[in-house]
Every structure is written in C-alpha cells, then in structure tokens.
Design a protein around this nucleic acid. Structure first.
Lengths: 230, 230
DNA sequence: CCTTATTGCGTTAATTTTACGCAAAGGTAT
DNA sequence: ATACCTTTGCGTAAAATTAACGCAATAAGG
C-alpha cells in the first residue's frame, strides 16, 4: 500500500489548513494547542491542522479540525493568512492556510484526543512547533484589527454576560485598559446590547445587569455602515 | 516529455499566486488585466498569476508575476486571501493565493506581453475569468480597510503630489467625498507630509503646493501607535 | 460592624469633527 | 480687456465625541 498513485508533470506542494482556536474564560484569552506525538517537533505544541481533502475548501478543512478538537460545528471561523515559506516543514514542501476560530469555552466538549490537547493563556504559551509562533502572532494581530470593525467579541462570551466581562474581553484582546464608566456608556450607546430580564426594581444594585448581544440591531446598523472604534 | 514524474500517495492540488495590480491615474483607481489566449475562459480577462515554484513563497511568486507585467521589482505587494473553492478552475483542483500590488503608474513599463494587457478603470472592468470577479471585490475591500490603518495611498501616487491628488485618491478608494478644507487640515495635522520647495513667497497662490510622503515621520508615529481614520 | 470593592448613573472639560466663510489669483468666454 | 467661474490656502464657530472623574447604594470580607 505504499504506491504513489497521484502523479503530476510538475511538483506540487502539500496544502494544509491550520486552526488557531481562541477562547475566553472571563479574564484572559486562551488558545487550544495539541502536543505533537511524532517527529518532527515531537513533544512540542502546535495548532490543530491537517491536509486538505480534494473535495473541501480550506475553511471546510479548518472547521473539520475544529470539530475534531472541540465538538463545535457552528463557531466563527475565519481565514487570515497563508504561510508558504519554503522550509516551514522540514519534511517536505507544505503550505498552510491559517484560520482562527472563536469559541465559547462553555460549549467546548473534549475532543477526540483530549489527552494531548490543552488550553493555554496567552502569556503561558510555550515555544511552538513549525512556524506556529509566527502564525499565533499574526492571528492575534488580526483579532485586534477585526474587533474594531465587527462585534466578534460576542463569539467568545457566553450568551448572557455582564458589562464587566465584556470590558475584560476587550481589554484582553486589545491589551489596553478602559475607564469602566466610559466603556459602559459607549457600549450601551451602540445599541447592540439588550438587557436580559431587567433587574427587579427593588433588587440589589450590586448584582450586575446581564446583557445579551442583539444580532438584529447589529445587522441594521451594519447596513448603514458603522464602526466600533476603541 | 509528457512523463508524470512527480508522484504522491495522496492527491495534491495545484497552487498558484495571483496578483491584482492597482494603479491610480489622478482620477480613478485602475487595475491591470490580461486577456486570456487559451481555454478555459479564452478571450476573457484575468489577473496576472501563475504556478508557484517549489523554491519560492507565494509572495515571491506574485512579485514575479508583477515584474513580468510591469517591470517593477519593489512595489508594495500584500497577500490578502487564499481562494480554494473546489471547482474554481474547471480543469483541475487549483487553489490560489491572491495578492494585491500597489504601483505608481508613471513607473510602469510595458510588460513582456503588452499586447494582451490593459489597464481598466474600476467601473469599466468586464466580467472576469475564473472566480476573479470575487477576488477583485475582496481586493478592493481589503484596500479600503488597509488605507484606514496605513498610508498605503502613497504607494499609488508619484513621489511628489498635490493635496487635491491625494484627496482624489482617498475618495476613489473609499468611495466617499470629503470637504476639501477638512481633508487638508487633517492630513497636515498627521505630520506625515513634507512640502517640497516651499512655493516662492510672491508666487501665484493658484499654483498648488507639492508634497512628498515623509516616511521617517510616519515610522516614528507608527511606533507610538496611531490610526489614520477617515 | 466596619472596611473595601463593585455597580449604576451622572457631570464637566478637553478634544475632535463638521460645516462653511472668504480672499487671492489663475483660467475662460465673450 | 472684462466679467465670471474655479482652484487654492487659511480660517473660525458650532456640534459632537471622548476623556476624566464624582458619588451614592450595596454586596462582600474580615
């Protein structure tokens, strides 16, 4: 069974799709890594990824990897860059179409191979296999850019969340701090949040108001073209 | 010589790099297209592009295409998306890593095959071969986003230009109009323009001041982190 | 029970954006 | 040449937005 059945006149590179999976635990951004069990880079950590089938797009391939590791089918997945350095894989020429996925940690089930998978906070990520350090840096930059144009933050939060959690998320991604009261005002003024059951009138003020992302309102506003700006 | 010498255990897609080449003639954005001489899509227009060699990155491949068509070696080239739809090429599975290049029209020499190459204004672009309509749309969107973060406009203008030319460029890319006086103030306040010889004191006011992009000043500001915002 | 941290709701000052006025000077048409 | 229109440079004032921060109610912790 070691026949080489697929032959071409010119050499073809292998093509893989990698998936940088981001989550948020209420305090910091986390990324899911897989420990490699084989050479090259045996024992090092890397992103989930694999060879593209001939009947799927790069994004479909990345989604397949995502599902294998997290059980999630409908998370937000976005392609962000294709890495094609000639020697990025020591074995053979491999180019990889890199994606990032944003998942709600609460919905993640252990994947097929939970033993070798682990979530790392951004400041705990070890040196990675292949060129995955570079891939991670670029993924984070894209995340920063994207969150200024689209409310992707909500992909990372539970359905219902507090304003403080939302602020923590923005601060973690953008690596800045905001004045709590200004952030609060700005977010509410955007009009893309809805309060869940309004806190009972006499109830304790200390219990924070819970919000939900208002996708319909956002769709309206997007039509008219609006920026988030932070 | 029709031997099939490169054999693999699994099928591999072909990988190409395409290069959407943008220019600016002082009024509108132009794009360089090549008329296809062979099937499929014979007679239709398409972007320059070609198969990636095994010893070059996607960007190097795109630069090679750029040089073949324009003679330019040091233009700004940026990868923006990889298109991997299963049937995007009717002959075989081909995925393409799409780039855009920004060139100064005055520096473009005719390419190797000038006969079949032509510049089109954006509103004259015909229906294109393959999925190149989609590629163009995405290239334009990326251009719009990018110009809000980095002063890529200067890649499209001559070394020396007037404020009106700069405004026309921004308006053409973003498809908006600005108040001339506000644009003027905003641009000058950014501090990334330098006047060329200050207009002689008694000279005619009607002769517009000529500017030059101040790359050093921009590098400084970028360090501190700044946004362009339009 | 006292201290501290969190939440909600403001206000004010600083800054930025937007809209537009105006004069000098060069072109254009008659 | 003259009258008129356009382009350029330089402002200014109002409107809107951002940034800084005050404060009271109330949980939570010791």
């Amino acid at each position: 069974m070691s026949e080489q059945n697929y032959c071409y006149k010119y050499p073809h590179p292998s093509v893989t799709a990698d998936c940088v999976i981001f989550g948020f635990d209420g305090v910091s951004i986390k990324v899911l890594l897989i420990e490699r069990g084989v050479e090259p880079f045996k024992g090092k950590w890397a992103f989930p990824g694999g060879f593209m089938n001939m009947d799927e797009t790069a994004e479909e391939c990345a989604r397949r990897e995502l599902e294998e590791e997290t059980g999630l089918r409908d998370a937000s997945v976005e392609q962000f860059y294709t890495f094609s350095d000639v020697r990025r894989d020591p074995r053979e020429r491999v180019i990889t179409v890199a994606h990032y996925a944003l998942v709600k940690l609460s919905e993640v089930k252990g994947g097929d191979d939970a033993a070798s998978a682990r979530w790392f906070a951004m400041d705990e990520v070890p040196s990675l296999a292949f060129d995955h350090d570079r891939i991670l840096r670029m993924a984070l930059n894209r995340l920063k850019e994207r969150i200024c144009f689209e409310p992707i933050g909500f992909e990372l939060l539970p359905e219902v969340f507090t304003m403080t959690e939302l602020q923590n998320l923005y601060e973690a991604i953008l690596e800045v701090t905001f004045d709590r009261r200004n952030f609060y005002n700005k977010m509410l003024k955007l009009g893309i949040l809805m309060e869940t059951e309004p806190r009972p009138d006499g109830a304790a003020r200390r219990t924070p108001t819970k919000y939900r992302f208002n996708a319909e309102k956002y769709a309206e506003l997007k039509q008219k073209g609006f920026r988030l700006e932070f």
